[in-house]
Simulated scan of single mutants.
Amino acid sequence: MNFRIKLILSYIGVILAVIIFSFIFSSIFVRQIFVRIIIGNWPHEIDLLLKPQVTMFLNTLRMTLVWSGVMSIFIGIGVALIVSNLTVRPLKEMQKLAKRISQGDYSARIGLKSRDEIGELASSLNYMAEQLTDIENMRKKLVQNVSHDLRTPLTSIKGYLELLEDESFTEEEKIKSINTIQKEVERMETIVKEITRLSIIDGKNYQLDIEKLDLNSVVKESIPIINIEAEKKNIQIQIDSLQKEIFIMGDKEKVKEVIINLLSNAIKFTNEGFIKISTSQNKNYVSLIIEDTGIGIDPEDMPHIFERFYRGEKSRSKNSSGLGIGLSIVKELLYMQNGKIEVESKKNKGSKFTVKFPVAD
């Protein structure tokens, strides 16, 4: 039995119950009133005279109630059909939406904007469809980026391995080929690490160990980890205003990961010049500022740099590895610690990332 039939039967059941109750109550009530008022204390002759009239009146009243009940049933059925149509139609639309989503059509939406419970359910389904659309887009970007970034180093490795089999290759050329293979392996290792980090952050059991931290100390611990990358490109990391203790509330390892990711990103897109790190504090926030003299960010890329798997054209150069999730991970880690990040950039002049943490009590 479908929902519409149940709804109609429930309406009819209510109407029948009201009619039966009204019929019984009216018959008893009217009979008693007539007996008390018209017949009760009158002489026996008048009683005999009026009794047929009272009986006729009661029969007429009874038939009136019966026909009224029949009409009420038909009216009730009509009302039930109208109400059921108004109720069932959006439910059927939701059923169709759920079926389309299950078939992979995440663009489906329900055009229902009522403010009742059904409208709220429709809004929830639309929101779910939007989230699934975003997830599907991210999945496609992930597959595209992984296939692109793995194909290139694998092709390079395969080519150099074939060249190493050539006996005419000199020892110097072999060493150069092996070094190139090593770099390509490191690129693939970076991709695997980023996917692993992403799966950990998305895990339900991902937890933070929040404690009171001296941000300047965490910065000083992070720099040696990333300084090797900077030295390979002859880029100097300048430290400014890190002498005074500045306390924040955060997870030490995750704060360190934020710093390393931002420094690594700055090194990746800085070909010459320097990277400057500084901290400051006001009444509400502790700020960590990382500036570079790199290639900057295109204005068209700026709104998307914190999106997962988004990479501007510069990021697809051969010298750049990764899936385009570094900055998105930074933003998510900061969000978990009640922090936020801002960015300023000018093309070919560099970028400035400002991370803000709440001041520790």
Rank of each mutant, 00 (worst) to 15 (best):
R4C: 03
I5S: 13
I5R: 13
K6M: 09
V14G: 11
F23L: 13
F25Q: 10
F29E: 13
Q32F: 04
Q32H: 10
I37D: 05
I38L: 15
I39Q: 11
N41M: 05
N41C: 02
I46H: 10
D47R: 10
L49T: 07
P52Y: 10
P52C: 07
P52F: 07
F57L: 14
T60L: 14
T60M: 12
L61W: 01
L65G: 08
W67Q: 01
W67E: 00
S68V: 06
G69D: 01
S72P: 07
I75K: 05
I77V: 15
V79H: 05
A80V: 00
L81D: 00
V83Y: 02
E93V: 06
M94N: 10
K96A: 14
K99F: 15
R100F: 12
I101D: 06
I101M: 15
Q103N: 14
Y106D: 04
R109H: 03
I110K: 06
I110V: 10
K113H: 13
K113P: 11
E117Y: 01
L121Q: 11
L121S: 10
A122I: 07
S123Y: 02
M128F: 11
Q131L: 15
T133D: 02
N137R: 15
R139G: 07
L142G: 00
N145C: 03
V146N: 00
V146G: 01
S147P: 00
L150R: 02
L150W: 03
P153I: 11
K158N: 08
K158L: 14
G159M: 03
L163Q: 08
L164N: 12
S168F: 00
F169H: 06
S177Q: 03
M188H: 01
V192E: 14
E194W: 03
E194L: 07
R197Y: 13
L198V: 04
I200F: 12
G203A: 14
L208Q: 14
L208C: 06
E211M: 10
S217E: 15
S217C: 02
S217A: 09
V218W: 12
V218A: 05
S222W: 15
I225R: 02
I225A: 00
I226W: 02
I239T: 06
I239H: 00
M249K: 11
G250M: 06
K256C: 04
S264P: 09
A266T: 07
F269T: 05
S280M: 05
Q281D: 04
Y285S: 08
V286W: 00
E291P: 03
D292W: 00
D292E: 09
T293G: 00
G294L: 09
I297W: 04
D298I: 06
P299M: 07
D301L: 09
P303S: 11
R308H: 02
F309T: 05
F309R: 01
Y310H: 09
S317V: 13
K318D: 09
S320N: 10
S321K: 01
I329M: 14
K340E: 11
E342C: 03
E344I: 03
E344F: 04
S345I: 01
S345C: 10
K346L: 10
N348F: 10
V355W: 09
F357I: 12
V359A: 05
V359I: 14
D361S: 15
